[in-house]
Amino acid sequence: MDLKKRVEQCLGPDNLVVSMIECQGDLSVEVPKRSVVDVMRLLRDTPDLGFNFLSDLFGVDNLDLNKPKKKPTKKTEEGAETEEEPEEKGPFPPRYEVVYLLLCLERNERLQVKVRVEESDMEVDTLTPVWKAANWPEREVFDMFGIRFKGHPNLKRLLMWDDFPAHPLRKDYPLEGQGEERHLIYDD
């Protein structure tokens, strides 16, 4: 039985699957945010899935994807340019997503689990009780995107210094920064 069916069988009964996408053989499952820890436990402990290794955890900012795309201006046959109507805007999908990469060591199968995070509620349950490996990646996501992890033992900035004001990997943050400066005062 292929992975997709098994995952559906495991998570389906509790309505834990929001959507499932397959891209070049990589299966990714979107699950509701509130039950992410339960999903992980299920995926880990169900015998025919056995995703017992957290390979990675990271965030994605979908700001640019959610933007209504500018349609390229097409030249009509007469030569006059006609601006096409912007598409009907549906409800925006949540801006951020947190992606968990799971791995089953016995069968060497990989699974991406996704959680979508609204800008209005930037809090996800921490995964550290399930896998200790989630410790620093969660801190990094917090550092880079500002997504908070509820229950994390030591949620502070990881890569940037403590009083860094922004979250650099957000799409609205410019690559060269906003002129943050480091004060060169000795700390004692």
Binding site: D26, S55, V60, D61, D64, L101, Q112
Partner: peptide, 28 residues
């Protein structure tokens, strides 16, 4: 689309997750 691909680097599993939005630059 988005894929994850890893290989055994000298230090261990070195993976790249690439997300594309169809343009010439990777989205993430």
């Amino acid at each position: 689309g988005e894929v994850y691909s890893a290989l055994e680097s000298p230090n261990g599993e070195l993976g790249f997750f690439v997300k594309s939005d169809g343009s010439a630059k990777p989205y993430r």
